[in-house]
Design a protein around this nucleic acid. Structure first.
Length: 558
RNA sequence: GUCCCCGUAGUUAAAUGGAUAUAACCGGCCCCUCCUAAGGGUCAAUUACAGGUUCGAUUCCUGUCGAGGACACCA
């Protein structure tokens, strides 16, 4: 992308230069260039004068004067004003801003791609559902947030690996195996002998049926053909895990989410990685034996109490393989790892980080990063929905996709800050009106497509457009929105907050709809027509790029 | 009890420590002979409470109140 369009960085450099001239001895102050809320305050504002007031013992307005005088010349600056307590408001020339239209059209799907990540490796783990049932709404939120986050990081220049980790052994899988076995024998959850911890959903019966029929199962990472033998618990286990992994794959595929790596907890044991990690921890001197158990002194690393690693029955607690797993991630070269999980995983953060610190292999203190999302409740007709037929006790992701569609589901699950609780209103997601942001944004894209289709000209000719003709009160905000897009990507990547893309797209669509209502595009004057078409074509491009990050389609017709 | 997260118009939500807190929905009024009215324009309405840090606080800190979540030799 042309650096001429990155006004913020450009201004940062200019002000840094001015600061060195005006306050050579002042302590270093980072230059902050912000976008004022009011158009009257210019396109960009700098608060440097106010920050220098104290160290320089001068009034902010006098410093602002000096800064402006010391600022190198730039032909993108129309004028500068000192306002308020000492803000320097910068107005960018219209000509410089108009350049964004051709910039977007030339960059195409790469518009908004930045070099923040510099090609470094980031591993993002998300969903990570255990194969004991269909994915539920919470997994859906994890999938939507996690996948969008991966797309944001990719756009920001990171080398992203999508990873799914699951436990294919242990108590839950034993319960799953037993449940399928009982079903296979004809015992149902209504039967008094059905175990308390058994799984009750209808899907258990489906698995039992498929096992009996010796159905071959192919999941992304599992391929099994069963014996059908009701007494072969091991075979039932393998089959059930593969079957549910396939179900989850189908749900994820319908949701537009794909993974690069599937990691199994059992492999950490069979590969000796758990054993190796335990030995390293013991060697580190941070462990001790007490009450027949092995403890890790996590209090050495900020935990509020020590944690058991190996229980008195000889098995390990959950966080030990988790530490082994993250050591493995570190060795695979991820300078950054982000785990997107439900908020109930909060308690593991300190333990995993403490374990990794105890290993003393050079892993940074705050590694890995966590993005934890809060609960999702589903609403229909104003009432909370809690059950589904297939899963029994929870609403499945598949239910939502089937009822409101993939686009609306992905948008709604990703459009909130992960930290806040989410109410998924099925009626709102299905409504085709102004209050449904998905349709509002898609509709903007469809309208532009319709206009361009009616025009029927070659897209290439738009690159010849005289964008200098774009200066109406409706065109200026649209230009500014397009200019801001790469900055939105940067913010979203740094904050690990893909929902910022959703909000941006709503504003972009709003500016377009206003423009659409106030203007006509297929006008007589050829030059004006081309300029306006170029602007809306660029708008459509940015909508498409932004929606792609959220995993939402940008239809040409609605 | 300890920890985490949240608290903004009637409702759902925005706002990298900045200037007059922003939208949508609901309610009032207006705009289709016109490229998609699934749209636009316009009016009214908000930072839970009390302190603190700061030139400046919705944002950071402390406390109170309120909603949700997590606590284990479970995973």
């Amino acid at each position: 992308m042309s650096s001429v369009l990155d006004f913020r960085s450009h201004l940062s450099e200019l002000f840094a230069h001015a600061q060195r001239a005006v306050a050579p001895d002042a302590i270093h102050i980072g230059i902050l260039i912000e976008r004022p809320k009011l158009a009257a305050h210019g396109d960009y504002a700098c608060n440097l004068a106010m920050q220098l007031a104290k160290p320089l013992r001068k009034s902010p307005r006098d410093i602002a004067q000096a800064l402006i005088a010391a600022l190198p010349k730039s032909d993108v600056i129309e004028k500068m004003e000192i306002a308020g307590a000492g803000f320097i408001n910068v107005f960018i020339t219209t000509a410089a801003k108009q350049g964004v239209v051709l910039g977007v059209l030339q960059a195409g799907e790469r518009y908004g791609h930045i070099h923040l990540g510099a090609g470094r490796k980031v591993g993002v783990e998300f969903v990570s559902a255990n194969p004991t049932g269909p994915l539920h709404v919470g997994h859906g939120r994890g999938a939507a947030v996690g996948d969008s986050l991966c797309n944001v990081l990719h756009a920001a220049g990171w080398d992203v690996t999508r990873e799914f980790y699951y436990n294919d052994a242990g108590v839950q899988i034993d319960n799953l195996t037993l449940s399928v076995q009982l079903r296979r024998k004809g015992i149902t959850p209504d039967d008094p002998s059905w175990p308390e911890a058994g799984y009750r959903g209808d899907y258990i019966a489906d698995i039992a049926q498929a096992y009996l029929a010796q159905e071959k199962v192919d999941a992304t990472d599992q391929h099994v053909k069963p014996s059908g033998d009701v007494n072969d618990a091991d075979a039932i286990r393998h089959f059930s895990v593969a079957y549910l992994r396939r179900e989850q794959d189908l749900d994820l595929r319908a949701f537009g989410v794909n993974f690069d790596v599937f990691a199994l907890e059992s492999a950490l044991y069979t590969d000796g990685k758990v054993e190796e990690t335990v030995n390293k921890l013991i060697a580190s001197g941070h462990t001790y034996e007490q009450d027949d158990a092995l403890w890790l002194r996590t209090t050495d690393f900020g935990d509020d109490k020590d944690r058991v690693m190996r229980k008195s029955d000889g098995t390990y607690t959950y966080f030990v393989p988790d530490v082994a797993y993250h050591l493995d991630k570190w060795r695979r070269g991820f300078v950054r790892v982000i785990n997107e999980q439900g908020a109930d995983h909060h308690s593991t953060i300190t333990r995993v980080r403490a374990g990794l610190q105890a290993l003393d292999v050079g892993i940074p203190q705050g590694w890995p990063d966590y993005v934890l999302h809060q609960m999702v409740t589903v609403l229909r007709d104003g009432q909370e929905v809690k059950i589904s037929k297939r899963a029994g006790s929870y609403v499945t992701l598949r239910d939502l996709i089937d009822e409101v569609g993939c686009d609306a589901t992905r948008y709604f699950l990703a459009a909130r800050h992960p930290d806040s609780q989410l109410v998924f209103d099925i009626d709102l997601a299905k409504s085709k009106s102004n209050d449904n942001p998905v349709y509002y944004i898609q509709y903007a894209h469809a309208r532009i497509s319709a206009v361009l289709a009616q025009w029927g000209g070659e897209r290439k000719t738009l690159l010849q457009a005289d964008v200098g003709l774009l200066s109406s009160e409706y065109e200026k905000p649209l230009l500014q929105q397009l200019i801001d897009y790469p900055q939105v990507i940067e913010n979203a990547a740094q904050e690990l907050a893909p929902h910022l893309i959703a909000f941006y797209l709503k504003e972009l669509a709003a500016d377009f709809h206003s423009y659409y209502n106030a203007s006509r595009f297929l006008v007589e004057d050829e030059a004006i027509k081309l300029a306006r078409l170029a602007l809306i074509a660029a708008t459509a491009r940015v909508i498409r790029n932004g929606l792609a990050i959220l995993g939402v389609n940008a239809p040409a017709q609605m």
